[in-house]
Design a binder for these strands. Structure first.
Lengths: 218, 218
DNA sequence: AATAACTTGCACAGCGCTGTGCAAGTTATT
DNA sequence: AATAACTTGCACAGCGCTGTGCAAGTTATT
């Protein structure tokens, strides 16, 4: 019964899915630069009317949440394999992977900065945050990362420092390579390495040298 | 002619000035935790009606600007004497002074995070920012502060890192002394010192040991 | 070619906010 | 005690936004 089931519905149109994605893309960009961006603005950026948004998302919050969630999934995917014996390397790598996904993740940064206003963001970022905390804890235990700051605090400070680099990078127009190195440097510095040690570590670790090639979206 | 000048007006009432100050205080606190706080909320916190606000400030923006400006003046005053031969010490001291004025300055932090949305903040912070940039530049020249990151970028990153400490401190409920040390540590780390070097520097420099006593307001 | 799926445009209600006018009240100053 | 200074409370206009209904259009699927 391919075409005549009880209450059968024709398959959704292909362009609907495309429009949904366009809305998420537009929301990611728009909310990234202004967390209060209006639906009008987002819809326009997606090439749709405001009214059409409601064909895909019941409320504005739902669209925002979907955008955040997609970003978080991408970030989680990009950082899933970051486990290294040396906590410093793991940390640098985590930063680098963050950098590699900035464009797709900027919503997170911009909304994360807002603080506790949006619970969705917290939930969405949870896996990455716990990975960071694990790295910091392990590093402190093995002596490769500072232990003069409580691990929980330190990992939040590193997170904020990394976000600051993303912002700085987009405002100062850094190249892909510059940003890639900078985010690692700042993460390592916050973690207690000297500038010299951070640079040496990066230079001595080939896998830290180049950004991931931009690849297929999730 | 003490009482009968042409068009003479009675002196403003003492409580009017008090109410104005109460509004600024309330705005500083309210905007610090939510940059979009309503006039209703601010007025209530100041023990006044929303309508009364307009007796002191023509628009909401004017109130916000006044609050920001007062915070900036206090911060500038608190950091006016920060000039030291050792750029590292100067940097740590700048962070410490920031910490000493957090309560009065939280508006700045919360609005500064918002980015370019509010030009007032940028102008208000200008003097402190240029002092920070000067310190970073001098330190890089003399070799006490890292020079692998462009001074302009580095000083912005240090600023953001310091703000992150303020936020972290209020959320984790640090003591005055803990926050005092933490903001210095993070500033120095971002500037390129190792955790060990940062701690040693602080320990070896008496003037960095204790927060300023809380003193008279501006 | 028929039809369901999707979009558009308009109109409208509603929300939460800012800013204003005004009359009636309260409080500090003289 | 008189009076100017200030506050309150209410009512109202207006703004920019979200969310909804509906009729008319367009576009992909069958």
């Amino acid at each position: 019964m391919t075409s005549a089931a009880v209450g059968a519905r024709r398959a959704p149109r292909r362009d609907a899915e495309e429009n949904r994605t366009a809305l998420l893309d537009a929301a990611t960009i728009a909310l990234g630069s202004d967390p209060d961006a209006s639906l009008e603005a987002i819809a326009a950026a997606a090439g749709l009317s405001r009214r059409a948004v409601y064909g895909h998302f019941a409320t504005r919050d739902e669209l925002v949440a979907a955008s955040v969630e997609r970003g978080a999934l991408r970030l989680a995917a990009a950082t899933a394999d970051v486990e290294r014996d040396d906590a410093r390397v793991a940390l640098a790598l985590l930063g680098a992977r963050l950098w590699d996904t900035v464009e797709q993740v900027r919503v997170l940064a911009s909304l994360a900065v807002r603080g506790p206003s949006l619970a969705v963001v917290g939930e969405a970022l949870a896996p990455v945050r716990s990975r960071l905390l694990a790295i910091v804890t392990a590093g402190a235990a093995s002596g490769t990362i500072r232990d003069d700051i409580q691990a929980a605090s330190l990992s939040r400070l590193i997170e904020q420092a990394a976000i600051a680099v993303l912002v700085e990078a987009t405002e100062s127009g850094f190249s892909r390579d510059d940003g890639h190195r900078l985010v690692m440097l700042i993460a390592l510095s916050t973690a207690g390495l000297s500038a010299h040690e951070a640079n040496e570590l990066i230079d001595a670790t080939p896998e830290l040298h180049h950004p991931l090639p931009e690849d297929a979206a999730l």
